[in-house]
Write a protein that binds this DNA or RNA. Structure first.
Lengths: 235, 235, 235, 235
DNA sequence: GATGAATGAGCCTTCATTCAT
DNA sequence: TATGAATGAAGGCTCATTCAT
């Protein structure tokens, strides 16, 4: 509960009492991520950010050197959140196909649950300076590389049919990243539902999983519920 | 060949003073689409566009009232290109599954082949004015609705497993729209290859198509080639 | 009727048939005066004028060298209209007081009846170039000088009480020029009514004319009607 | 004296960095009013205003959101100045005729003495946006309504001859507003002289006040002086 | 440490005017 | 003669960033 409140009005930390600077930095980042996702990086002005945080513009420059440094930090946290989720996949000893499936689920969940995660998926890095863009892209690529390696592993161990691993990775990453485009934080779709559906759709395809196991049956039930609950979502 | 050249340096058309004005409008749009895709809508200034076209800034206002009118026209043409491609799907009398597959192929092809198509997929409509945004979104939604209707048809005719049609459509559309993010016009990947691969991946899943037909064998060969040729692509 | 139509859609002359160029110049001037009075000189663009006349912009430059030349000609015609009206005053052999009275009536009538007359009263000559402004001001001053001379004559012949002739002239001219600010061409007030009322108010004052003659009685009746009919006018 | 200097070169206030922000706003407004009256609203650019104030253009946007907000504030202050002057008229318990006379004097004085007052009389509100124009016109109308009510009262109590109150109000307001057209701040005419003369001319007419009282005699002497001193004024 | 004020650079747009045809 | 196209100059406004206090 308390957690929730902080998330929704992080700028309060500035007013209520003096906290340690790390908390303030966090508040700035969270609000910034919010605005960046809502209006885009370019269209979010430092003034707007400051206003939302109930502080003055120069105060922002106390915590961050640049507007750019703010986004970059959003990116970094987002990447961390995502990679954290993906780490769980690595430990499970399974074939490539199931690793990809778990990957999708983890990635989608991270993007749905964390604003920073959505920043990674949605923010246009074209506005960044060259140096920064390089860093951000390197981070992103690391995630892509992981996915590609799973796919390649799957092709080797026979769990995935021969295909262009790069294209397959692009397709999957695209579908997942795109979530940020239509996902509405307050909506009826939970991270679990989205994650499960995407994992199934992007690995099993539209026919559903080949052997209808009990797991598949369960999944299908979930999907049905999801459909019902979603009825009114979308933009 | 000659055609190709004009496409790549459309601003040349302005060198000659008297020309069919429609040709010039086209040149503006093509160059604009180019720049919008490269730097984003906001970061592309009218000055830059004019410079690239070897004309002065006010001359642009001869052909378009607004900067916004330029993007909107890009959007419109993109939508037209895409819907044109999708029309071929409609005529083929087949089950929902195969319609979706054909849809993916057609959509992906349109996005890869036409800059305007990529504009639809990539440009952030958040920079538009309310009225214009509404129009653009209505157009986009029409495409999404088509896809969703195919999925629903597939679930009815049994060719597609039960799932949340809305989520499935989002996944597919996301994967395809994302192509604009990584696709490099000069690269080795052809529209056919990308289209075929995406169609297969997003409908059959990673296991590949159930019955390995000769067609599937052919596809697999293509994919392998694609992978080799792509080796150095990506951002 | 025919007259009326020409006044309201003078640009038709361009379309219907080729007339001698003088007619076209007139059409331009009339439309220009219209727009200048409606939106002001600066806010009326040559494009707008051309559009209203159903001709192209460069065509305007065929009849006039400048935008400025257009207004100047409006001024000139307006001055001519006014001075024409004032000439009738000169011939009548009477004392200064009655000359002023007749002057007011004539001036007010000219301003109410002719758009060019209103241009003289309303258009801000601050937008003109120095040379042109000098000419226009000289023309205007001539009118003012006439009024002042009447007032001075009146003071000499005893029909007007001692006062600062310059200030008195300013007061009268201001009241009359201001008519253009509130006068609505289609409204219920006729030129005669306005002229008579202003002549009376600005010379006799608010007490009315000293000796209530039959003429005064008539005037009073007119005024009452005017008031009734005006009820809803004004901006 | 010191006060006077500040009024004439208000932009000096900006030289000192830290100042009461209200003072700076005032300086901007005063300089703006100056320029607006000199060149007109449209022809006064924000650059020019900034230059005159020895600041940069964007600094202006610290104190006002818009160019329009600057004029509107000029209007508001002008209206306040005028209504303030008119309030004194209300208290005096007299007939309509004398109220009108006092009104003219007060109005004329306000316009002559305050640049903001002159803004109300002179600035063309046609350049304003619809919403703003509505506000300004409503304010202006309030002043006009006051005058009209005095005239109507005068007609009822018999101190003013029957006439069209609306036209009479227009005539008087026009004469007074026009003052801004010819009045030169540095010239020899004082506010008192102008106010007294206009009050007399616009209510008593050119014959002078009916009963020549000692007051009238005094007035006549003032007028004579005024004329002498004015000799070189006018535009 | 925090703030009100200020700035330089840049962007979209308008307009009177002139070519080239 | 008449026109579609083009232009130079300027204007209002925004924004990330930095002083001076």
């Amino acid at each position: 509960m308390n957690e929730r409140r902080k998330t929704r009005q992080p700028w309060n930390s500035f007013q209520v009492r003096k906290r340690d600077p790390e908390v303030k930095r966090d508040a700035v980042l969270l609000t910034a991520a919010h605005l960046f996702l809502e209006h885009g990086y370019r269209r979010t002005s430092m003034s707007e950010l400051a206003t939302r945080l109930n502080i003055t513009k120069p105060a922002l420059y106390h915590y961050f050197q640049n507007k750019e440094e703010i986004v970059v930090e959003c990116y970094r946290r987002g990447i961390a959140v995502i990679e954290n989720g993906l780490d769980n996949v690595l430990v499970s000893p399974s074939d490539g196909f199931h690793k990809v499936k778990a990957y999708v689920q983890a990635y989608a969940t991270a993007i749905v649950q964390h604003e920073f995660g959505r920043c990674v998926a949605m923010l246009d890095d074209g506005a960044l300076s060259q140096g920064t863009r390089r860093e951000v892209r390197a981070l992103k690529r690391r995630i892509d590389a992981t996915l590609r390696s799973y796919i390649e592993q799957g092709m080797k161990d026979g769990s995935i049919a021969a295909c262009d691993a790069k294209l397959a990775a692009f397709a999957i990453a695209g579908a997942v990243n795109w979530i940020g485009t239509w996902y509405q934080p307050g909506g009826p779709l939970t991270a679990e539902v989205i994650g499960a559906q995407f994992a199934s759709l992007l690995t099993d395809g539209l026919h559903g999983s080949g052997n209808v196991s009990s797991a598949a049956g369960l999944a299908r039930r979930d999907q049905t519920n999801a459909r019902d609950r979603t009825a009114s979502s979308g933009d």
